[in-house]
Design a protein around this nucleic acid. Structure first.
Lengths: 140, 140
DNA sequence: CCATCATTTCGTCAGTTATCGAAATGACGA
DNA sequence: TCGTCATTTCGATAACTGACGAAATGATGG
């Protein structure tokens, strides 16, 4: 029991992994989507996801080339359930978490295939229109 | 906020520190009492306690030579409060935690001064009477 | 004042962890 | 069957952490 608690609490005791958990509160995401939001190397993100899964906090689903992760629902681990509940009630107004949610909105506006090919570059065109002076979408 | 969460969750993500928190659910204890139960070096215990205090999970009180720690009550940190609540509902049947509680009962049966002088040796006489064959307290 | 003693801080060591790039895996489509 | 591509695993590196003994701190009691 203490060992399980340790596994889960260590999994949660890292900002990148907490950001992932908060992202997944909005529904499942594939690895490349999470990677695009966090702006980390795919290998790093994959490892974080694996750790969260081992702790019983996440579940996995494969769909073609892509692997989707989501918050564990029927997880057998009562400790993990408690931690998920705690995190659900936390950090909802944290600047980093809010920024991640904004970034996620951009990510969701792009098909997964495009995102995987282009990475964060795929988001630029849909971004807050900070540039693009000449045409398309000006105040008319 | 994320930073605070990280501090608190890292503080909780260590078995020794969780054992301390569970011990203190029974009320305040001085450093040497915690040290006797955990069977770690005083410096190590002091560091753990300091970390838990910085995270807002513990409060401190000095009484003469001794420093007493207790679970934070009026702590301003909502994150710490949530974690304390979670831990309060966890691990109550964990073998290590139960053993710590048994050891704490022995520790509480000894005056603090004696405990500080003799360390764990002060507990032997009150222990499950595994030795002491000749006199005093036989079944008679 | 000074010695004592509980606690804390300092310095160090071994073990762990987050991160990355490179290579391996595994599923899809030609 | 073979190449492509998302994901994972491997290997290495830098930073962090838990543990300890030794020294510093700080309050008590003579």
């Amino acid at each position: 029991m203490l060992e399980t608690f340790e596994t889960v609490s260590k999994a949660v005791a890292d900002p990148s992994r907490v950001r992932i958990l908060k992202l997944l509160e909005g529904g499942e995401l594939c690895v490349c989507q999470v990677t695009a939001v966090l702006d980390l190397a795919p290998a790093t993100v994959s490892k974080h996801l694996a750790m969260l899964k081992i702790a019983g906090l996440l579940q996995q689903r494969r769909d073609g080339k892509w692997v989707y992760y989501r918050l564990a629902e029927r997880e057998l681990n009562p400790c993990a359930r408690k931690f998920l509940g705690l995190i659900g009630g936390c950090l909802n107004e944290d600047p980093t978490i809010e920024e991640d949610r904004r970034m996620l909105a951009l990510v969701n506006a792009v098909p997964v295939q495009v995102l995987c090919n282009e990475g964060r570059a795929a988001l630029a065109s849909n971004a807050p229109a900070s540039k693009a002076p000449s045409c398309c979408g000006g105040p008319s």
